[in-house]
């Protein structure tokens, strides 16, 4: 399977933050969920992919070619939604349609109007009268109307109401229904990703802690609930992280097969729980260093 995005060991040192050896691939025809807490490096990585910041080390390929050398050509095939709308607030959707027509060779007015109708957006009102959710929806409509092969979305569902969010997520799933289209979606709202993502990349403090197919990731990890005494019997090499109280413990392990006795209750963790224990483990391991 071809990769839509290949991020190879990129590093970038900023004032109070650095990306360190960030690597992951987004396969064509899939949705990659890019998760991490606030300030983990999601937006910085996206900016690096879009050549908004230059990396100190590493390389990025989009559709198999260097993202800087072929930037204009590549961006014809990418739809981008930033965490906040980047259109001039005095414009409206009608004027955006006119502007976008001159920018993208493959801009499709009919698809744009269809998306606007589906997302219930008024085409004559200036963006400054829009709510945050409406602005995000307008950005999404624009990003999906020039027959892009790849969508790069930074927190696209933030501010959108639950009913419309379902509609938006459906649109994303429809977008990747063939093998040609892919999405990189950054979010810390893991419920959305749990629903639509095919793979998950977890970034924490500028480092990739986990990059895996979603189903195998959920299958591999188990959440064990036990007493503090029983915790001592779990093989430490299989423990990713744990949360301990006076009477009980929650332990995330990557192999739960030996723990089938009545001392252990085995649960399926959510992406949010997996993220939490990985981050907790990272924190304690760096503290030891």
């Amino acid at each position: 399977m071809k990769n839509a995005i290949e991020v190879n060991f990129i590093s970038k040192k900023l004032k109070n933050f650095s990306l360190t050896n960030v690597s992951f691939n987004v396969e064509s025809g899939t949705i990659m969920g890019f998760v991490g807490e606030n300030g983990a490096g999601k937006t910085t990585t996206i900016k690096a992919i879009l050549n908004m910041i230059k990396c100190d080390y590493g390389s990025i390929n989009i559709f198999g070619t260097d993202h800087i050398k072929n930037e204009s050509k590549i961006k014809e095939d990418i739809g981008i939604v930033f965490d906040e709308m980047c259109f001039n607030e005095s414009l409206n959707l009608t004027s955006m349609n006119k502007i976008m027509k001159t920018i993208y060779k493959q801009w499709d007015e009919q698809i744009f109007k269809k998306h606007c109708q589906r997302l219930e957006l008024p085409d004559d009102k200036p963006f400054k009268t829009f709510s945050k959710g409406m602005k995000m929806k307008a950005s999404i409509a624009c990003a999906m109307s020039h027959n892009a092969k790849l969508l790069i979305l930074d927190e696209p569902t933030s501010g959108i109401d639950p009913i419309m969010k379902t509609e938006v997520l459906d649109m994303f799933q429809e977008f990747v229904s063939d093998e040609e289209h892919s999405i990189l979606i950054s979010s810390h709202i893991t419920n959305d990703l749990e629903r639509i993502a095919d793979a998950i990349t977890f970034i924490h403090k500028g480092q990739i802690l986990l990059c895996e197919d979603k189903l195998s990731m959920l299958e591999r990890h188990k959440l064990i609930k036990c007493t503090p005494q029983a915790l001592e019997t779990i093989d430490s090499s299989s423990i990713i992280g744990y949360r301990k109280s006076k009477f009980d413990c929650e332990v995330l392990v990557n192999d739960a097969t030996p723990y089938t006795t009545s001392d252990f209750v085995i649960d399926q963790p959510t992406i949010e729980q997996i993220m939490f224990f990985y981050a907790k483990n990272f924190k304690s391991s760096t503290a030891k260093v």
């Binding site: 900016k47 879009l50 050549n51 908004m52 930037e71 204009s72 050509k73 961006k75 014809e76 990418i78 981008i80 930033f82 906040e84 709308m85 980047c86 259109f87 001039n88 607030e89 920018i103 993208y104 990003a143």
Partner: peptide, 17 residues
């Protein structure tokens, strides 16, 4: 000034040089 936050991002997201 108004374009500070929007213009950079908008241009970066498009094929425009």
């Amino acid at each position: 000034s108004d374009s500070k936050n929007t213009f950079n991002k908008f241009i970066s997201s498009t094929p425009i040089n």
